[in-house]
Simulated scan of single mutants.
Amino acid sequence: MKKFLAISALACLGVSAFAADGATLYKKCAVCHGPNADKVYLNKVPALKSLKSADRLQYMKEYAEGKRNAYGQGAIMKINLKGLTEDDFKAIETYIESL
């Protein structure tokens, strides 16, 4: 009964046990963008850390929707971002900012 009450209390507070983990989500991104988001991919895609936070977030959304194809990377980015939510994008962005 105590476990049920504790879980119910957390649910009422809006605490999610399934909150997006930016570091884990970013691992797929790190292949091209580097572990510290400072890699210039294919000598043309700017390092993520060099972009403004709001721009990075907007670009992720646009790539996921198939509306962006900067540097010819639209198709691969759409595949890599498939299934991610707005909260996932924010978690990734927060992680990049922490680097």
Rank of each mutant, 00 (worst) to 15 (best):
A54E: 15
A20Y: 02
N69M: 10
K52F: 06
L42Q: 14
Q58Y: 08
N80Q: 14
Q58A: 14
K90D: 01
G72F: 11
R68S: 10
L99G: 08
L48D: 00
T85V: 05
K44Q: 13
T94D: 09
A91S: 08
L84K: 14
A6M: 14
I96C: 05
K52L: 03
A70I: 11
M77H: 07
K2T: 03
F4I: 11
S16Q: 10
M1H: 07
S50T: 15
S16G: 08
L84W: 14
A64H: 01
E86C: 01
T24N: 10
A37H: 01
K82L: 08
A6K: 13
E62T: 05
N36E: 12
T94K: 11
I76S: 10
G34Y: 11
C32T: 08
F18V: 02
K49G: 00
N36Q: 14
A91K: 00
K52M: 03
A9G: 12
S16H: 08
M60G: 00
L25S: 05
M60P: 00
N36G: 12
N36R: 12
V40K: 14
L57M: 07
K78I: 07
F18D: 03
C32K: 12
Y41D: 01
P46M: 03
Y95I: 03
V40W: 10
L13M: 14
T85I: 08
F4T: 05
N43W: 09
K27T: 14
Y59F: 10
N80V: 06
L48S: 02
I79P: 00
Q58C: 00
D55P: 03
G66C: 06
E93L: 08
V40Y: 10
S50Q: 07
K2A: 02
A9S: 12
Y95F: 15
G22Q: 04
A17T: 06
K27H: 06
S98I: 12
K2N: 04
A23K: 15
A19Y: 13
K2C: 00
A6S: 11
V40P: 02
I96L: 11
L42W: 11
V15K: 01
Y41I: 01
C12T: 12
G66E: 02
E65R: 09
D55W: 10
Q58I: 02
Q73W: 09
E86A: 12
G83P: 05
H33Y: 06
K78E: 04
L84M: 15
F18H: 09
V15C: 03
E65V: 02
D88N: 13
C32G: 10
K49Q: 04
M77A: 06
P35W: 15
L84V: 09
K78S: 04
A54N: 13
L10M: 15
G14C: 07
Y26Q: 01
S53D: 09
P46E: 03
G66A: 05
L48E: 00
E65S: 14
K28F: 03
K39S: 02
K44D: 02
N36K: 15
